[in-house]
Write a protein that binds this DNA or RNA. Structure first.
Lengths: 194, 194
DNA sequence: GTCTATACGAAGATAGAC
DNA sequence: GTCTATCTTCGTATAGAC
């Protein structure tokens, strides 16, 4: 594998994640992802021999890792800071794209694959959600929140952010994210000062 | 329009909503919705002359109305009862379908249509979210929550439920919904007893 | 009014030329 | 190793027979 190959591969994955977040899983075609990365169609199947399933799974994991890294970094300043960064990250993506982009992990979680059984991309999406929840829950526990409540709050935060991103897209407004942000912030503040 | 026509039409709309909630917007084809309703392909275009855009828009509104009716009914017993019914409704859909069905309104909100501009289905989705929020916010205000907080809480509830439904699908578990339910319940209880 | 047959495009995937 | 050309299937939509 040459150096430029690696770069093309990464461009394809990142581009696929972006397209999935806009059009959804099914409407993101291998053809278009290749064109977007200025790579011929055949190359995509060279880099991703298992086809679309492999590409979208990597796109989900890529988004998951990228977001988790940001979350991990910001959580060092505490749960409220982490929550703020998490919300700001998605707000930027939604607003900067003119309410066209969203979360590719959510896209995968909403569209059932044609085949009957355990699609790799959906399993990856579940893992990504769990990782984000674990990061948040861990930080909450470190700040005195009891484990059960920490886990529930973490789930609520991730779910609320994902749902709000979709609502902002539909309404073409950042208002839902701002409303959710304020309520979640109060909730986390109250939890860690109990 | 004959009596049986109306029935077929309704079957097509309800079937489309179900398929959208499972496969997503783009993977729900007119062909399959027709087959699902045991109607020939041509009939679908007879009932929905504007094609897929019209059908999916009606499916979104159908889901919105159906859910709003349930919400309105249960909110008569107060915000906590309304929230509980709202959560129970989606929990049933997700669990009874073996984690295959979800919310068609969310599906539409996550997938950008191929064309450039204001797709009717997305506008309908935004309206549905707003209606659900308004119902919840109204009930909260009636129970003494100040308008601004009532609106923010309502947004949080709708967003969290939508996001949690998607998470349950990905994880193939009702756990996220149960966690979210408990936290939202506490939050609403605290708000109305301030 | 209901439906069959079909036009046309685009999808996923692959064969095989370079 | 890289890419073009193509196979097959399925999508939306419509024309026109009953």
């Amino acid at each position: 594998m040459t150096k430029s190959s690696t770069t093309v591969r990464q461009r394809i994955v990142a581009g696929a994640a972006d397209m999935m977040s806009r059009r959804g899983l099914n409407a993101t075609s291998i053809r278009e992802t290749a064109k977007h990365a200025r790579a011929p169609l055949g190359s995509t199947y060279h880099y991703f021999p298992e086809g679309k399933q492999q590409l979208v799974t990597e796109a989900v994991r890529y988004t998951g890792e990228w977001t988790a890294a940001s979350l991990r970094r910001e959580l060092e300043a505490g749960p409220v800071a982490g929550l703020g960064a998490f919300l700001a990250l998605w707000r930027r993506i939604v607003v900067d794209s003119g309410f066209r982009a969203g979360c590719p992990v959510l896209a995968v979680s909403v569209e059932e694959p044609p085949t009957d059984e355990p699609p790799a991309a959906l399993l990856a999406a579940a893992d990504v959600f769990t990782e984000w929840e674990n990061l948040l829950a861990g930080s909450l526990r470190e700040h005195g929140v009891e484990p059960r409540k920490a886990a529930q709050l973490a789930t609520l935060v991730v779910a609320a952010v994902e749902g709000t991103v979709a609502m902002c897209r539909a309404k073409r407004s950042p208002q839902p994210l701002d409303d959710t942000a304020e309520q979640l912030r109060d909730l986390i503040l109250a939890a860690i000062t109990d």
